[in-house]
Design a protein around this nucleic acid. Structure first.
Lengths: 149, 149
DNA sequence: ATATAACCTAAAGCGAACTTTAAGTCAAGA
DNA sequence: TCTTGACTTAAAGTTCGCTTTAGGTTATAT
């Protein structure tokens, strides 16, 4: 029924000190204590910890996660704030996805660059390549470089 | 033909102090100096700075970027190391993309959760909802929660 | 009763990535 | 020539997200 901080930390693959830190920062207002002061995690706390993990993965700073937790405890009056914060973070994730796609294209280009160089034994091969020998997928990338100078 | 650190920083939308910091950390071995010690950036340096930005966006620590820059200066003997590092980072980006997709699904669920709660005026609405009233797209998510307990 | 392992807090420490500060130098225009 | 603004370095400071340390308490097994 209850889990100690060590057990919960193991389930979540984090250090117990991390959970204590989150608690100190007000991110775990739902955690109860035994009469002796020991933290007692419940199964339903997992839901909160999952959300915490999700917001963290989305790149939300701990301070904002704390706001969210505070609002949650305040009840239905704060639904719109919480929705707003979720939507903001959703947009941030969409932005990050777009950024990662650009980054991946660049890495794919570099991978091709060094694969080609490896086969030729020298990076100099790229000075001898005609534009048609560069895979099409990288053309938009290189066109952009022209612009940026 | 040449750009000062301030001009280059503006082009890249970073603070001049950031570029000085990168230089101090050995990330900009290509930057030349005037007789008076002033950094002189060339147009072709943009290529390196673009790569630097790309690796940073991919989450590579500055120390590893430094290795890459060091290898680049060492010439063709280090092509395979550079390729290896690029491929490692490519994989890391693929992993990050997968993670962001999971995160997005969770945020989409929470968005639906709070939109529904907002319309109803209370989070309590979710205790009254039958499983069929939860959008299909969130079923795999919730099934996973069952498992994790 | 005692040993031991896991828990507790408060406070200090750490690494990454910058930013700021202080003191001074360079370069271009009036 | 002098002023001014942007440049230079070295070193200290900042923020974030933990982790470690120190000193002590709780809970369980023998």
């Amino acid at each position: 029924m209850f889990y100690t901080i060590g057990e919960m930390a193991e389930r979540l693959n984090v250090a117990p000190s991390t959970l204590r830190y989150y608690d100190k920062e007000g991110l775990l207002p739902f955690v109860e204590r035994s009469s002796g002061g020991i933290r007692m995690f419940k199964d339903e706390d997992m839901e909160w910890l999952r959300l915490l993990g999700c917001l963290k993965k989305a790149g939300m700073p701990l301070k904002e996660i704390r706001s969210f937790m505070d609002w949650s405890r305040q009840g239905d009056a704060t639904i719109s704030q919480r929705l707003e914060l979720i939507e903001k973070q959703r947009q941030s994730v969409l932005d990050q996805q777009k950024q990662l796609e650009d980054t991946l294209l660049m890495l794919d280009y570099k991978r091709w660059y060094y694969q080609t160089a490896q086969e030729a034994g020298t990076c100099g091969i790229h000075d001898t390549l005609s534009p048609e020998q560069i895979p099409e997928q990288f053309r938009p990338l290189m066109a952009q470089w022209e612009k940026e100078s």
